[in-house]
Every structure is written in C-alpha cells, then in structure tokens.
Design a protein around this nucleic acid. Structure first.
Lengths: 329, 329
DNA sequence: ATTAAATATGAAAAGCTTTTCAAGGAGAGT
DNA sequence: ACTCTCCTTGAAAAGCTTTTCATATTTAAT
C-alpha cells in the first residue's frame, strides 16, 4: 500500500506538502496543489490512521462490549451507538461477552491495547477484576444496564424497580385482585431483582399480604415462561401475570391458550421489553417499552462529552413507557 | 498513558528487554524478567497496538459493513463473525450502511484508512464506485448476499432462486392447485427477485400458466404482508401463499385470521428467513431457515485464509432448510 | 533599489514498538 | 592463560504522518 512519501515522489513535492494538501492546513502553490490532488485521485491514497493515531494519541474509535448482539435489545442499542458515533466521525469496535465477567475484562484489555478513545459497556455486575482494570485505565467508561457507582464511571440506566412497579400498579388499577409474577434470576442488584422488588412494592401497596404473593423465578426464556405459568396455576387461580420479560410473558400466554384459558378475558398478561414479537403476537402483548436505540445514542454522547472534557453527568436515566395491547385490555 | 520506555525505566532495563519479556521472544536474565513482570503487573501496561500495527502492517482488525444491525439476520451474521474473529484474535469494526451504496463506499474508505486486514460486506449491488474502490484497494473482500463475480472478491451466498423454488414445490407437493406469492421489491439481481423467479419456475413446472399466476410485490414489512394478502384474496381464492420473508408471511396470516380464514386448513402459508417469531407465533410459521450465524463464521474463515495466503475458494454456498410448522401442515 | 514582510517549501522530530546488529560478559575447553 | 562460544543487553532503525522550524523565494513598501 502506498504511503505519503510515494505520493510526494509521484507529485514531485515533499511529504509535508502532501500532508498540507490533504488536511488543508496551510497554503500550497496552486499548481502543486493540483498535481497532488491528481495523484491522490489516481492512486486512491488514504492516510494511515495508525500513524495519525500514534501522533495524536487519539483513534476516533469507541469500544463497545455487549453480552449478545443477536438480542434485539442490544442490537438496537448498538445501532444507536453506531449511528451517533458515525455522526461524530467515530467508529466502533464491537465485542461480545456472553455476560461472562472474565471475558468482559478480557475485552477491556484488548480495547485498551487498541487505544480506543472510550468504552461503552453493557454489563450486569462489577467484580474486583473489573474495578482493578478501571483503576489502571484512564479510558472514559460508560456503563449501561446497572446503576454503578464507581469513580468516574458514567452510568446509563433504567429504573427497573420503578418501571416494574408502574406495570404492576397498572394491572391493579384494572381491578385485579392478585397479580402473580414470573421473575428473572434474582441475583442481587440485577435488573431481574429490581423488577421483582417493584412487583413486591406495588402488590403490598395494594393490600396483598407478602405471604400470599405468588411468584416463580424463570430464566428469561419462553420455555420457562410456559412452565412457570403452569406452576402458578397449580398453586392459585390468579387474574393477572406480570413477567420480567416478553419472552416469558409469551411463554405464559402460550400455556394459557394451550389450556383454553382466554387472554385477556380470564387472565391478563403484561411483559417487559417490548420485543418486536409483542406487537405481532395474537393476542398482542402489553409491555414496558424501553428505548434501547436512544440509550445507545445517549451513551455515545456522554462518552464524547467526557473525552472532550465538557459536561460531567454521571447518571443518565433511560425513559420507559407502558404499552397497552390486547393481552391486558 | 505509560509507554514501554516508562516501563523500562521503572524496571531499570532497556525497552528492548521489556519487549522481549512481553513477547517471550528471547532469553532474558531471570531476575530482570521478574522485575519487568512486576512492573507490568503493577502498572497494567498494555503495548500500543497502533505502533505494533504500524510496524507489522497488520491490525488484526476486520471491517464489517451490514445494512442494519437490528435486523435479526444481520445480527446473527455479525455474531458469527465476531465469534470466529475473536477465536483467531481479530477484532471487528462494525459499520452500518442502511443499504445506501454511497454510504457503503464511504465505509470502505474509512476502513481502508484504519488499515483493517479484511472487509466483510453484506450488500446487494456493486456499483461502479464500489468497483473503483476495489480496484484501488488490495484489502481482501468477502461479500455476503449476492453472487458477485469481480476480480478477487470472495462471495458467500445463498441460492435464493433454488431455495424459493424448493419452498414452492413443497407447497405444490401438498396437493395445492395454485400458490400465490407476496414478493419483495423486484430489483434486478436482488434476493427478492431471485425468490420471485424461483416461485415462477416451480409454478410453471406445476402446470400453472404464467398469465394466471398471482403475485403482489411488498416491501418486506408486516404491513405490506397484511395488505397484499387482502389484494390477493380480492383477486382470487388461493389455497396457499408464499411470502418472500417471514414478516410479510406473518402479516398475511394476521389478515387471514382477522377475516376468519383458517391457517393452514383454508390457506397454507410459508415464509422465508426463519425469524425467531416464526417459531413462536400461533400458528407457527413454516419457512426457509438460513444459517446466518454460520455464514458469518464462514466469511471470517474465508477472509483469514485469504489474507494468510492459504486457500482460494471464491464462491462459498450457504445452507438452507425448509422448516415445516403449523402454517402449512 | 533596498529592506521588510509575506509566502512557500522541505528537513527533521515526535509518537511507540519490535527487531537487527553489535558489543559486552561469562563460561568452557585446550 | 587464552580463545572460542554462548548468553544478555542496549542502541538504533523502520514503520507513517503531522507539525515545527528554518530557509528560500516572492511581493510590497519606502
């Protein structure tokens, strides 16, 4: 591949002059300028971003670490990131972690080697190894998903507790006596846990005794929604079910339909996430919609502001919205 | 951020020695080695990949250009790419083109600047500007989606015509008299066009007169499936509908159910893509499953082989499979 | 016509790592 | 004791671009 010396030789000028033409950084004799432009055009020469990055100590690259890009939430998130990054002439290096803390830290180290200007990380937990890495790194960090407080971390997060609380309150407001829940795994500080607590709070506020509450913990899969719905019905005849994500809600509906229980007439169902399926399914599924695309945009904006040294918001909230569809009317 | 000179100073050795320790490239006095390792550990130093890349003329980075990452097909594709790249210690720079040729070429130019080792491109058309770029670039190129023949391009593609032909034949084999189709946009050489031709071929082979064939062109959205199903029924009472993708198939089913037409008893429906929704929907949707994840894996394998100078397959086929579900039983 | 100012241009250094080359030191063999 | 090897180690160059600095040339001004 050609370098700037080659171009200079072809145009009969010095590398400095070529650089000046490319970057419009100083006056160049018009005739020479034309000669250089012509050579650039003919050769399709592009300056080596590695050399530039080395010089400026800046790569115009952001690292993005998500658990799984094929999850629609994260692909929307990444889409927002890519769009906003592009508009600010940044590119993104995309890495997936499978939600494994070890691999997450591995990603950080590789991104550090590649000298990305910032890292956007969708993760659930901050282990000591994460923190150790952060301590040794001065790369701006934006964390999405959990409400982390650690040094100069910027965190973008959804108030899962409140969103879940609102969803359950919405069901009670329809005159439901008792709402059951299919939760996600209840790790401390996880999104699934907060959603469960929101459910708890709303239920207690509606006069349900905590002992009488019905909830089963699933694992966010359709199958677990199906099976936990079964378990719930074996235990009690409830009027509404709130699931910690849409897949489990759809699994639950599937079980109900398979057993000739009408949704929403007999049992109302509300999910969480607004998966594209929610809209299409019959009956369409009421759910909490989170704008992951916008979250991605905000993450990039925060990262760029941080590395440009302007602005210093540390906590950025994500908007959500209850979408009412057939499953809970 | 620290550089290798700083580490050398801290450990009381020369940069060369630090380099030797990091890369295990030569014998180093054990005592010094320990000192260096200790400093590395304490500082969390990582060598600058830009400098390395400059030296070796190699970045261990692949460029990936897809139309839209939030499309499940492409996110599966990218997932496969990322996994296989990682296993070969490559990273990926992800860019989205929105299927706009101008932006695609823009992406190529940025990726060239960043000196990626190879480019994987999911696109539909090869304009003159694409070709001009390719002529000026010696970066290995893997194109996914269309059967491109241009210089040293490697192309990974699905035989859309044959897949569609098989799907329609499958419907006729069920004793259907006439199959209607909801096509995608019929640009020349596009996937949508090939799927239409496959439908044509299978229909003619089953004795349908081309004049009597019913097909409506949609735009791959659910809405267009819904509306085109209506148009088809206004024209003729068909027994089966083949849609060029699952979204349109689901839109069609929705229209049928809304109008009390039973699927599959009254009308059978087959889609294309095996969108995750296809499996979950009631009735579940028969479709053509394409392994996009594996396509991504193969793309990376081909790219790496090419840039390592081993192997030189130019055409790599993608496997597909008819998945029979409730909508066509 | 002469000096000051402005314009244009190239050489060189910086940014960071790796590898080659040369040299120093230690150990072994005669 | 001397020479030959082998092992260690550091200096320096290469990879590419940009910017500063100094030089050369032209223009303007007196």
């Amino acid at each position: 591949m050609l370098n700037i010396r080659d171009i200079a030789k072809l145009a009969g000028v010095s590398p400095a002059t070529v650089s000046r033409v490319i970057n419009n950084s100083a006056n160049v004799n018009e005739e020479k300028r034309q000669r250089v432009l012509e050579v650039l055009e003919q050769t399709g020469y592009k300056p080596n971003a590695l050399a530039r990055g080395l010089l400026y100590n800046k790569t115009f690259t952001l690292g993005v670490v998500v658990p799984d890009i094929s999850n629609i939430n994260f692909s929307e998130f990444v889409k927002g990131i890519e769009k906003e990054a592009r508009q600010n002439s940044y590119n993104i290096i995309l890495m997936t972690s499978g939600n494994e803390p070890e691999r997450e830290v591995e990603c950080f180290e590789i991104l550090k080697e590649k000298r990305v200007d910032g890292i956007i990380f969708a993760g659930t937990i901050l282990t000591d190894r994460h923190k150790q890495h952060l301590d040794n790194s001065n790369i701006p960090f934006v964390v999405f998903g959990q409400d982390f407080e650690y040094k100069s971390l910027i965190s973008i997060n959804l108030d899962n507790l409140k969103a879940s609380y609102d969803a359950v309150r919405y069901l009670y407001s329809k005159g439901i006596k008792k709402v059951a829940m299919i939760t996600g795994p209840l790790w401390d500080k996880s999104a699934g846990y907060d959603r469960y607590i929101g459910f708890l709070k709303a239920s207690i506020e509606n006069g349900i005794n905590q002992r009488d509450l019905i909830y089963k913990d699933g694992d966010f899969t359709i199958t677990s929604g199906y099976e936990n719905m079964k378990k719930i019905l074996e235990q009690d005849r409830v009027e509404a079910v709130f699931a910690a994500n849409d897949f489990m809600a759809l699994g639950a509906i599937k079980y109900l339909l398979d057993n000739n229980i009408k949704v929403p007439q007999d049992i109302k169902v509300v999910g969480f996430d607004d998966n594209p399926i929610a809209k299409i399914y019959t009956p369409s599924l009421s759910t909490i919609k989170i704008d992951f695309y916008n979250a991605g945009v905000l993450a990039v904006k925060a990262a760029i502001k941080c590395l440009d040294g302007i602005g210093d918001e540390k906590r950025i909230p994500i908007e959500y919205e209850i979408i009412e569809r057939q499953s809970s009317i």
